[in-house]
Design a protein around this nucleic acid. Structure first.
Length: 572
RNA sequence: CGGGGCGUGGCGCAGUCUGGUAGCGCACCUGCUUUGGGAGCAGGGGGCCGGAGGUUCGAAUCCUCUCGCCCCGACCA
């Protein structure tokens, strides 16, 4: 491809609204251009990269036994009403009407459509399993799109759906997809972890997020340094402490006493006022549940994870109780709740085990109490309630967890029968009994993967593409276009490379060398061949590796073989 | 949805407070010089100042409404 024939508007300055590096570099490298919040035009260079990701995904999905389909972007509301999601999905679902005033939505995901496709034509367990995927543009009307392609409203996604006659088969496919995803992201040249997103109650986990580890990710991941355990911080479990022997100080601790703490409600205020560490406080939160109000306790320096609390009660959601409920159950305004003397069920985080002489609310306005000893002064059910932190114990081994940021680029999820049941996608099993198909779904954000690759692979000068995703393998750069010798040598090398099947960008623009060098670094093509008069006089050209800066002079006639050797070495 | 900020040429911005015929840098066009890391000089083209209404002799500037964009938070998975 000739540079001059390609729309490749590089920018010297960064766009004002770009928050993260990948977005800045994609805009500056002329890959994307924003047209509206979360909606982008993809320019030729950008598309080439997206196609690289797509093709890797396609190859690995095919290799894993999945078949590609194409599903509609515009989906009739009936399908979504069947599954019940038309009412549940909320404003993120973009709804439109056609000229006959019929309702449709722009597909944000395609469980309904794929289920509809399969339910008509699959009637027997003999026709299963199936795994169908598509690579397609989707739309989610995100509240706050940001970070360029990382969190757009319109975005390209690979989504796959599998159908099975029994659980074992569904689980096998789940593993199959985990392996396929691992291959995909390896080929993309990314540092990533498959992270448990949700643990099944009975062994194993059936939701994994593939997280690319970077400093700018939107999600926080707790990963064990010693084993494979990794989980979204919102779900990450913490190893329960071994039972603590009561220490001497515990035995000899003084009885509780009240202290006046006028207007001191928050942990910071109370710890500052009393001159104790936040970790010496017990935070008491009153929550509303189906079973009435409960108290949840965590150590003062930790944060309660509502999801963990919800899981204790096996509900999808818990909410902090309102002011009225708090004063009803504690007899005090919020900010002064404490476990001592409470009549409602008390759930305490493991972090309370071994605490002694703690400070808690006094269940009385402007009052706290100290010398509180769990077990002596109140009883509680102990469980894992706090957000995991760096240094916490791994739940699976003796190692410790470290928190890192990550970008979710893929998600593998066992769906079960939610859609097949509501939409009547059933088969007859070997006994002639009708049962819903068991489904799984598997997504990969294409644009997000490309963005994540940039987050992980760039320097001050620009992008450094992993060979697998590079828009071109090689860039041929002529210093002086007007010099006929240079130009004909460059043309020769360019043609040879192209004929050898090496994707080559030929920068034959009639601009100063400096501009071309800067653009080459910015665009980040792995290998650059520079053709200048001086070297050419000795029959040489320069071959430079973008990632390492390593540079070699090569004989003109050896260029193509040398480049091919280099590319092989780089893993392209 | 709450709070804050910004809309001025393709991009980045000044001008707005204190109304008086729209400016700078980059990019673009022409010429000359230059030519291995975003050149210099000279000349030039391009802007319904986001939109509507109002105040005024006169509005980018003041007032009202509106649309869009960005940031923080809440929401969402």
């Amino acid at each position: 491809m000739r540079f001059s024939r390609m729309l490749l508007p590089t920018l010297k300055e960064s766009p004002a609204d770009a928050e993260v590096m990948s977005q800045r570099l994609m805009v500056r490298a002329g890959m994307i251009k924003k047209v509206a919040a979360g909606i982008y035009e993809i320019l030729p260079l950008g598309l080439r990269v997206l196609r690289k990701v797509e093709n890797i995904v396609r190859q690995e999905m095919d290799r894993a036994g999945a078949a590609e389909v194409s599903l509609p972007v515009v989906i009739p509301s009936e399908l979504w009403k069947e599954s019940g999601r038309w009412d549940k999905y909320g404003p993120e679902l973009l709804r439109v009407r056609d000229r006959h005033n019929r309702e449709f939505c722009i597909g944000p995901t395609h469980e309904e459509v794929i289920t509809d496709m399969v339910r008509g034509s699959v009637r027997s367990y003999r026709q299963l399993p199936l795994n169908l995927y598509q690579i397609q543009t989707k739309f989610r009307d995100e509240i706050r799109p940001r970070f360029g392609l990382m969190r757009g409203r319109e975005f390209v996604m690979k989504d796959a759906y599998s159908f099975h006659a029994d659980e074992r088969c569904a689980e096998a496919e789940y593993k199959n997809m985990l392996e396929a995803y691992t291959r995909i992201f390896q080929r993309c040249g990314l540092e990533f972890r498959a992270v448990e997103a949700e643990s099944g109650a009975i062994g194993g986990s059936f939701s994994h997020e593939f997280m690319v580890l970077t400093d700018t990710g939107e999600d926080e991941v707790a990963a064990c340094g010693s084993c494979e355990y990794a989980a979204n911080v919102e779900r990450a479990e913490v190893r329960p402490p071994v039972d603590k022997e009561p220490s001497l100080s515990e035995k000899s601790i003084n009885p509780i006493e009240s202290v006046s703490t006028p207007g001191k409600k928050t942990v910071e205020q109370v710890s500052a006022f009393l001159g104790v560490e936040p970790a010496a406080l017990i935070k008491t939160l009153i929550y509303d549940t189906d079973k009435g109000p409960v108290a949840a306790l965590v150590r003062g320096d930790l944060e309660l994870n509502e999801m963990k609390l919800a899981r204790v009660f096996d509900v999808s959601d818990v909410a902090l109780a309102d002011e009225e409920t708090v004063s009803d159950v504690t007899g005090a305004p919020s900010g002064f709740a404490g476990p001592v003397g409470l009549k409602i069920p008390i759930y305490a985080d493991y972090s309370l085990l071994g605490m002694c002489g703690a400070v808690t609310g006094g269940n009385e306005a402007d009052t706290h109490i100290r010398n509180v000893l769990p077990g002596r002064d109140f009883e509680a059910t102990y469980c894992d309630l706090a957000f995991a932190r760096t240094g916490d114990g791994c739940p699976r081994c003796e190692g410790t967890l470290t928190l890192r940021r990550g970008i979710e680029v893929g998600h593998v999820f066992k769906l079960g029968t939610k859609y097949s049941e509501s939409m009547g996608a059933t088969i007859l099993d070997a006994n002639g009994k009708e049962r819903p198909m068991i489904m799984g779904c598997y997504g990969i954000g294409i644009g997000r993967t490309a963005a994540a690759a940039i987050e992980q692979n760039h320097d001050e000068a620009g992008i450094i593409w992993p060979p697998g995703l590079a828009p071109f393998a090689v860039e041929v750069l002529v210093i002086k276009v007007k010099d006929e010798t240079s130009m004909s040598a460059a043309e020769g090398i360019y043609n040879e490379l192209t004929e050898a099947g090496v994707e080559t960008l030929f920068d034959e623009r009639n601009v100063r060398a400096g501009i071309k060098f800067k653009d080459a670094d910015l665009i980040g093509i792995p290998v650059r061949i520079t053709i200048g008069e001086r070297n050419l006089a000795e029959g040489l050209v320069e071959v430079k590796v973008r990632a390492t800066g390593e540079e070699n002079k090569v004989k003109v006639e050896d260029t193509v073989t040398e480049v091919q050797r280099l590319l092989k070495e780089l893993g392209g």
